[in-house]
Design a protein around this nucleic acid. Structure first.
Length: 306
DNA sequence: TCACTGAACCCCTCGTTAGT
DNA sequence: ACTAACGAGGGGTTCAGTGA
């Protein structure tokens, strides 16, 4: 028994036909037939029931097909791991993250990197945008996610998705903010983010456009804390729209309709490191993950449309 | 008519052996 | 220890036949 026979076995099972399997495998139909026959003889088990309309798996064949698929996956894994060692892509890859993993599609990114470069050891460092930038410039990170405009020439950025932000208030402040103007909002207590957080600059710019500045009462560096403080009645804050809508649905807070801001989520890396294998692997996986997701979204839309 | 099997033949791979 | 030549065997193809 060898991997070729197992591959043939799985292909015939999936195509339910020797002829179609032979086309998939670029072999003649008798060659495929002989491989199946040899495998059945060696195993002492009938894998298929032959009919005039093709081949159907027996119960034993069905069970053994799962084992064969696992064996083929294992072989593929050995090959890809060897490939990654051959390419020299081993060692540590440090990625800066912000906010929560779903928004960053972190699981998809990590899966992609693990599949393509199993020799890499991945390390995540959770912080805020400004800290990600600092750590990148200090050489502590290979890349990372940040929100907002990047104006440092040393940094290359891949824009991955727009981010909509909303001004939110405690749920029982509905009366205070309904019909409120920017001047009223600026006078109310404001929960700010640290200066290194992109939200800080976005908030400052937003109020500055109206010739105002918010009355900050406390600064927090975690979205979950921010949400809890707003919900507990401490003050207003700027929050991601998806989080704000979820919290509003749960009657934790209310959204001030006039306070909408848009920004951009970027994946960043050092221009000077752009040719390094690890940074190239990272940026390629980021592009793949977000491009694939867009294609998936498009196909979903077209399915709905049809 | 379509799909699988069997027979005959060909070619390539791999193990063995001999020479350097 | 390495290399080249040789032969056996495995796996491929084509073609003909069988069965549902």
């Amino acid at each position: 028994m060898d991997l070729t026979q197992l591959k043939t076995f799985v292909t015939v099972a999936e195509e339910a036909s020797l002829t179609r399997a032979s086309e998939v495998l670029f072999l003649s139909q008798p060659a495929v037939s002989a491989q199946i026959k040899a495998l059945e003889a060696e195993l002492g088990v009938t894998l298929f029931q032959r009919t005039a309309r093709g081949m159907t798996l027996t119960m034993a064949g069905n069970v053994l097909k799962q084992d064969a698929m696992r064996a083929l996956d294992a072989a593929k894994h050995v090959f890809s791991r060897a490939l990654s060692f051959r390419d020299g892509l081993s060692g540590e890859c440090n990625i800066g993250t912000i906010s929560e993993p779903v928004m960053l599609r972190l699981s998809e990114l990590l899966s992609s990197l693990m599949d393509l470069h199993p020799g890499l050891s991945l390390r995540l460092s959770q912080s805020i945008s400004g800290t990600v930038i600092d750590q990148l410039l200090e050489g502590k990170l290979h890349g990372g996610y940040v929100i907002g405009h990047i104006d440092d020439a040393r940094i290359a950025s891949i824009p991955v998705r727009p981010i909509t932000l909303r001004i939110v208030a405690p749920f029982n402040w509905l009366d205070k903010i309904s019909g409120a103007k920017w001047e009223d909002i600026a006078r109310l207590p404001w929960i700010s983010m640290p200066k290194k957080c992109s939200f800080h600059q976005i908030t400052a710019n937003m109020f500055a456009r109206h010739g105002l500045s918010p009355s900050s009462v406390v600064a927090v560096d975690q979205e979950t804390t921010l949400r809890k403080l707003v919900a507990s009645g401490i003050g207003l804050a700027l929050m991601r729209e998806d989080v704000a809508l979820d919290a509003e649905a749960k009657q934790e807070l209310v959204i001030w309709p006039q306070g909408t801001e848009t920004s951009q989520l970027h994946f960043i890396y050092l221009r000077s490191e752009a040719q390094s294998p690890i940074v190239q692997a990272l940026s390629q996986s980021v592009q793949t993950v977000w491009q694939l997701a867009e294609q998936h979204a498009d196909s979903t839309l077209s399915l709905k449309a049809s």
